[in-house]
Nucleic acid binder design. Sequence first.
DNA 1: GGGAAAG
DNA 2: CTTTCCCAACGCTCG
DNA 3: CGAGCG
Length: 295
Amino acid sequence: MQVEGKHIPIRHLDKPFWPQLGLTKGNLVDYYIEMAPFVLPHLRGRPLIMKPYPEGAGGRSFYRWALPDWAPPWLHRWPYQASTEERTIEMLVVDGLPELVWAAGQGCIELHPWLSRTDDPAHPDLLLFDLDPGPGSDFAGCLAVANWLHQMLEPMGVRAYAKTSGRHGLHVLVPIARRYTFHQVRQWVRATARSLAASHPDRITLDKSLAARRGRVLIDYAQNGLGKSMVAPYSARATPQATVSAPLTWTEVAEARVRPEDFTLLTMPQRARAMGDLLAPLSEGQSLPEPVPGS
DNA sequence: GGGAAAG
DNA sequence: CTTTCCCAACGCTCG
DNA sequence: CGAGCG
Ligand SMILES: [Mn+2]
Ligand SMILES: [Mn+2]
């Protein structure tokens, strides 16, 4: 395959990746090419953690931080030395269509970019409220929590945006000025989440233990960390229904009639063309107010 | 998916 | 020659 | 302190 002058060999385009839906590896590559105008703005300049599924959505998978030695030399990359490792690795940075197509060709169904960018990795430009439903809770519970969260943030003057994770949870994103460390962001999210949980103790927890999560939504503030990632907006997920991470309007969140399965490899391109990128304003960072006092 | 190590 | 293995990592809370 | 968790 030829992409912007780069030769990208991709084998087994007919391999079934979602057998129940008749979708192939070729369909995955086509999806990312078609969605590139929407996906790329959310990947540019960010270290990417790849998650290949070489045998398709039902098969084995693994996280890949380091570009392998045999990766094409023209791929944009960024050197990183993890705090626990002695060796420096090179991480993929999807700055253009060729990188995106190469990753898809590697069987990368899921794209997991960092919340910070290579030119200032310690200072994220995205703040994440990661809403994970515990056992006995579900996506509807996440929608309710997201709505309460929105109602809390709006009067504070904090612009926030929502998207499905594509699995069972929801992501509420706040674009921020790159002035805060991950630690500071984590503290702010924890304080805000704590205050919200105090109002809905039976619906929200900040405690990752299984017992505390039963019937509640976990606000996983710890996801705001160096080296932590978030499934990219419009990224496909390795689910049987070929769901994707779909941006939502706050009206959709409030009405609570959407389900993760409504947004798939098949339906997302149409929706994106019709609605545009609901997350385009993520590029405009904002300062954070003092966290609401309390607990 | 692709290369290296193990059998 | 064929099969198996390897591909990650951060930081909090609990026990 | 290590184990478990996302
Ligand atoms: Mn999540
Ligand atoms: Mn999580």
